Simulated assay, not measured.
Amino acid sequence: MTFFEQVPGPSPSSRSQRPGARGVPTAVLLVIMAAVTVGGLWLMSEDAKSDEPLLSRILPGIFPAAPEMTTDFAELADRMTLTAEGREVLASTQPRFVDAAELDDLCGSNSHGVDDGTILGCFTGFSDSRAQDRIVILEPTDEWVAQSLLTTTAHELLHAVYAHMPEDEQAHVADLVAAATARIPAEDPVHEQIAASMGGNEQNRATEQFAYLGSQVPLDAHHDAELEQIYAQTFEDRSVLLSR
């Protein structure tokens, strides 16, 4: 609740100002406000020598530092030929390796695996706070898991990329991946992979199509040029992911 108090009127002596003097305080105030606004914009801006806002360098506590990837995931980012944007999204998920028991505990129904049921990784997060996004990957303790590492990490990264999109962009991408998936031959195992990963939830269809197509399916150069451009925002050379 807000209370308003009657402010007493000025005394007769306060009215005896020189002609024109009454507007000076207002003009000064406007100049000060303009200076503060310009100064604030300058502090928030980026300069030519750094991608970090100047204010965050002067007062680093205002802006949280971007998380750093471990050496293992930095090397994976290189192998996946991630763009600067792709690296930023991957780093924001604080990716890490876990054993099979922890992976099963953390991922649950969000897990992605192969035909024999082996869980390889997952992306989890909350739509209300992208800061809670996480990627966990099965620790490559044998050669078979190691060979799947690039595809698995790229797949989970694409889930994070899709989650970061505004709703209108997600809707557009959903149309693109639906059309691209429809052009893949019916006997291709990716259809079963998408269906299995959806877990019967139709709301998961677009993100699964986006992740599977982007991490393991060559696209039609004529029909899917726009979709390929979207993937190019994450991967400099997506062909390194395509083994078939």
Rank of each mutant, 00 (worst) to 15 (best):
L176W: 12
Y162C: 06
Y231V: 02
P60R: 04
A27S: 04
P185Y: 02
R130D: 09
R244Y: 10
E226G: 01
P140F: 05
R244P: 05
R22T: 15
A179C: 12
V7L: 09
T81L: 07
L30I: 13
Y231W: 00
S50I: 05
M198R: 02
I137V: 06
T70I: 05
T93C: 12
L103V: 02
D220A: 14
C107Y: 04
D47N: 10
L213K: 00
S50D: 10
A154N: 05
F123V: 00
T153C: 06
N204W: 04
V28G: 04
Q193P: 02
S127T: 13
L82T: 01
Y231D: 01
V114P: 06
L106E: 13
D99L: 06
Q170E: 15
P10W: 08
V190F: 07
D104M: 06
A27H: 03
V31A: 15
M198G: 03
G23H: 08
L59G: 06
P12L: 03
S92A: 15
V177Y: 06
A195F: 06
A84T: 10
P67M: 03
R244N: 11
S109C: 04
R57G: 09
A77S: 06
G117D: 00
P8K: 10
R96I: 07
T152A: 03
G113H: 02
Y231I: 02
L241D: 04
N204G: 00
D224L: 01
W42R: 11
V217L: 11
A186D: 15
P64V: 13
R238V: 09
H155G: 00
Q229V: 11
D224Y: 00
R130F: 13
E187I: 13
V173R: 11
T83Q: 03
S129E: 09
P64Y: 03
E208P: 00
A186N: 12
R96Q: 14
L176T: 00
G214C: 07
R183W: 03
Y162I: 14
S13T: 10
V217H: 12
Q229H: 07
M1W: 08
Q6T: 12
E192I: 09
H222N: 09
F97Q: 03
T70Q: 13
W144G: 07
F126E: 15
H164K: 15
A225R: 08
A34L: 10
T70D: 14
